[in-house]
């Protein structure tokens, strides 16, 4: 998952590194650091905004370590669904229980179908749907698309993925 922390640190050397250690120690991948020295608070502290990606299970450890180091945490924000991809489905999408197909993605807890456009030609002809799947990370999105392809195979629905680059 991707976390954004708003912190305030003392304006003395070595403070920023004190914040970064707990993140890297727990395997977090830092995406961005904004160190706002121009906007110091009335208490003379510097606001810092750090965005990083980390395994959900390991995040608690980061928070514990930050608290142990007496870092002022102003706000913790989680961006949930970060990655998305659009795929095209061709087949008997409605008659093979569309709700079930969507549920298979939504029930994962890490991915959701966030958009769906459906065209239905004459009865008995295959329909087409453009489906956008959103997930908490790249790995999760890959897993969700695997599930969709697997469902597609069982329901004889052709799943057309986007090009990688």
């Amino acid at each position: 998952m991707r976390i954004t922390l708003d912190l305030e640190i003392k304006d003395v050397p070595g403070e920023l590194i004190k914040v970064l250690h707990p993140i890297s120690d727990h395997g977090g991948n830092i995406i961005s650091i904004v160190h706002n020295r121009d906007k110091s608070t009335p208490r003379g502290r510097v606001p810092v905004k750090i965005t990083f990606e980390i395994d959900r299970k390991l995040f608690e450890g980061v928070m514990r370590d930050l608290k142990d180091r007496e870092i002022d945490i102003i706000r913790v924000g989680e961006q949930r669904l970060l990655e998305k991809k659009t795929v095209l489905l061709i087949g008997h999408i409605v008659h093979t229980d569309l709700t079930d197909t969507i549920d298979r993605i939504d029930s994962t807890g890490f991915a959701e179908v966030v958009d769906l456009q459906l065209t239905m030609p004459d009865l008995n002809y295959p329909s087409a749907a453009l489906v956008t799947v959103s997930a908490t990370g790249k790995k999760e999105l890959g897993k969700a698309l695997e599930i969709l392809k697997d469902v597609g195979k069982k329901k004889k629905i052709l799943v057309i993925e986007p090009v990688e680059t």
Binding site: T86, I90, G91, T119, P121, A128, I160
Partner: peptide, 18 residues
């Protein structure tokens, strides 16, 4: 062989080629 006109149209309207 499984690509239908409807699928092509839907993709195209959303800015995609197949």
């Amino acid at each position: 062989t499984g690509i239908t006109t409807e699928a092509m149209d839907l993709a195209q309207r959303n800015g995609y080629a197949i």
